[in-house]
């Protein structure tokens, strides 16, 4: 096993002027090149956790944090945010909070410019990032004039040009059409496979988690409820109920058939598995 790129140990956190810990006793680690999905109810602490991983909490937001979070060997509570941001890129849930320039191209190039890269390299990276997120031809458009989904993709492209080791995405597909959603997941897969990037994604989309993520972390009321492969998590009835997780439709089909008295050979999380298992039973 390779050394983890993210290590979270005994993490507790509460916001300034609040007595309640929004995260309690969180422990987990992520290896390089893994795709970890974080899921759970709204208000469970998912976004807070993403901001902690990137060092924005507590450095820019204050609050009280115990335990430690080590990213690429750097302590996120102590390391300079400018240094951390080259290791770990973050795409926020509401892209509008992140967009500020007057042209899509400038927006996407901004991060790379700040790395002090040569001009050609900046242009190359920005073009690549726009291609990856399917926004070629939008270079001259004003970011605020784009649709919600397009803005989300601009924000992703902006983070991509930094070529960070780790990318944290907070619900990056919540406003995207179905194929746009899959494309973002395909992009993430490519980043993982081609560039060995580690991906942390907050998402409710279980069907995509099933198809793309290596592991799933479920947070419930600030606590880590479970950490496992998508199959382990989605087949855990107790966890699903407690954290109100939507499971893939193919998994629901399994449970529905089970209720009727028909048990498929295994618990499917992918549609092709489901089709195969059903065919086994009825052909």
């Amino acid at each position: 096993m390779s050394k983890p790129v993210i290590e979270v140990n005994n993490l507790y956190y509460r916001y300034p002027r609040s007595n309640d810990y929004v995260l309690k006793d969180i422990n987990f680690s992520v290896e390089k090149g893994q795709f970890l999905a974080i899921t759970g109810e709204n208000g469970a602490g998912k976004t807070t956790l993403s901001l902690i991983l990137s060092g924005i909490i507590p450095q820019a937001k204050g609050g009280k944090m115990h335990g430690n979070v080590i990213v690429c060997g750097l302590d996120t509570q102590k390391e300079d945010l400018a240094v951390l941001s080259q290791k770990i890129g973050i795409v926020l849930e509401d892209p509008e909070t992140q967009l500020f320039t007057t042209k899509v191209f400038n927006e996407v190039a901004f991060g790379a410019e700040n790395l002090g890269l040569p001009r050609e390299e900046i242009i190359k990276r920005a073009k690549w990032a726009l291609k990856v997120v399917r926004l070629e031809g939008y270079e001259e458009r004003h970011p605020t004039m784009l649709s919600g989904g397009q803005k989300q993709r601009v924000a992703i492209a902006s983070a991509l040009t930094m070529r960070p080791d780790i990318m944290v995405l907070d619900e990056p597909t919540s406003q995207l059409d179905p194929i746009g959603t899959i494309e973002v997941f395909e992009v993430v897969k490519e980043l993982k496979q081609k560039y060995g990037m580690t991906i942390i994604m907050v998402t409710h989309k279980s069907e995509e988690i099933a198809a793309f993520a290596d592991n799933v972390l479920v947070i419930n009321q600030g606590e880590l409820l479970t950490f496992g492969t998508p199959k382990e998590v989605f087949s855990n009835k107790e966890v699903i109920k407690k954290a109100w997780i939507t499971i893939p439709q193919v998994s629901s089909l399994y449970l529905d058939l089970l209720d009727k008295g028909l048990q498929l050979e295994e618990f499917p999380i992918l549609p092709e598995e489901g089709v195969r298992l059903v065919k086994q039973k009825i052909s």
Binding site: D177, P178, I179, I182, Q249, V250, L253, P271
Partner: peptide, 9 residues
């Protein structure tokens, strides 16, 4: 657009 997973299955 893609139909829901169950429709595709």
């Amino acid at each position: 657009i893609l139909p829901p997973q169950i429709t595709q299955m």
